[in-house]
């Protein structure tokens, strides 16, 4: 068995694997978060092994307990993402983990918070295709002790409905796709990658609706605060569920609600929302 360590928010998960194929798969999923710290003490140990059946399904075992089995594909990747994030955040205090996309420009961070299906990944991909630096399409950690954004920099997980739109954004490189969607390395959209950890500068709450006209609305800090609380992932680990910290974020960063059904007009609209220093190419 070989080891692959994933580090995020001060926690590490160890993934043991038994084949080169799985090793490449893990590098695709977690290459930007791989830890090589020999002294780390993993919060959990996951095993991803090739099963003994004829079709070579993969088995996912968590701390010795069977979790899932499936072919090497987008669905299995989604399960591995989900379980790794769960174990990384299971005991994480000291800050708030938020369900949000994030991109950066000019070293300033634009958060794209929302529930699954809100259109975070597609909007994040589109922003990256327009020169923003990719940070994550899923999760950030905001430490309480310092104004910083720590991003879970996984590849983009694109659902089947957004596949064609995102394919049109690709600048080159391979993607991993099947009937369940696509796993897109962010460098395939924007090869330039310089991780940014500045605190959030702008909050953009997306809603994708097929065929919808572009609509943008400035949100009051209170509305933004309530929406951020709905994206709080690790509240149970924090004495106030992260309420105080997220209210401070809502006060400090301008917030907008964006309804979109395509990308026409989006470039001008987004440019108008961003502070001047965030909007420089």
């Amino acid at each position: 068995m070989q080891d692959f360590f994933v580090a995020f928010a001060g926690q590490t998960v160890q993934i043991r694997f038994d084949s080169r194929r799985v090793g490449s798969f893990l590098t695709l999923l977690f290459g930007d978060m791989q830890s090589f710290d020999p002294a780390c003490s993993p919060a959990s140990v996951l095993d991803v092994t090739v099963g003994k059946d004829d079709i070579g399904r993969l088995m996912l075992v968590e701390n010795g307990e069977f979790c899932a089995a499936g072919a090497l594909g987008v669905s299995f990747a989604a399960v591995v993402f989900d379980r790794v994030m769960f174990h990384l955040l299971r005991d994480t205090g000291g800050g708030v983990a938020l369900h949000t996309g994030a991109v950066a420009r000019d070293r300033r961070v634009l958060l794209i918070p929302g529930q699954s299906g809100a259109g975070k990944s597609t909007l994040t991909a589109w922003l990256c295709s327009r020169g923003f630096t990719y940070l994550t399409d899923e999760l950030v950690f905001l430490p309480a002790a310092e104004p910083r954004t720590h991003s879970f920099t996984r590849p983009l997980h694109i659902k089947p409905g957004a596949r064609e739109a995102v394919k049109a954004m690709l600048a080159g490189g391979d993607v991993f796709e099947d009937d369940h969607g696509m796993i897109v390395p962010h460098r395939a959209i924007n090869p330039s990658f310089h991780p940014v950890e500045s605190p959030p500068s702008v909050l953009l709450f997306p809603t994708y609706r097929m065929g919808a006209s572009l609509m943008v609305e400035r949100l009051s800090p209170a509305r933004a605060g309530a929406l951020l609380m709905a994206c709080d992932v690790n509240g149970r680990n924090l004495a106030d569920h992260g309420f105080g910290q997220l209210m401070a974020v809502a006060r400090s960063a301008p917030a907008y609600r964006l309804v979109y059904g395509g990308f026409d007009g989006l470039e001008v609209t987004i440019a108008a929302l961003l502070p001047a220093s965030l909007d420089r190419p």
Binding site: S220, P221, A222, R223, G225, A226, M229, G235, D240, H241, F243, G244, M247, A250, R251
Partner: peptide, 15 residues
Amino acid sequence: FFLERMDEEIVVYHP
């Protein structure tokens, strides 16, 4: 519940 007042509006969160 936790309550935060922002201008004349409020956010309430019940843990």
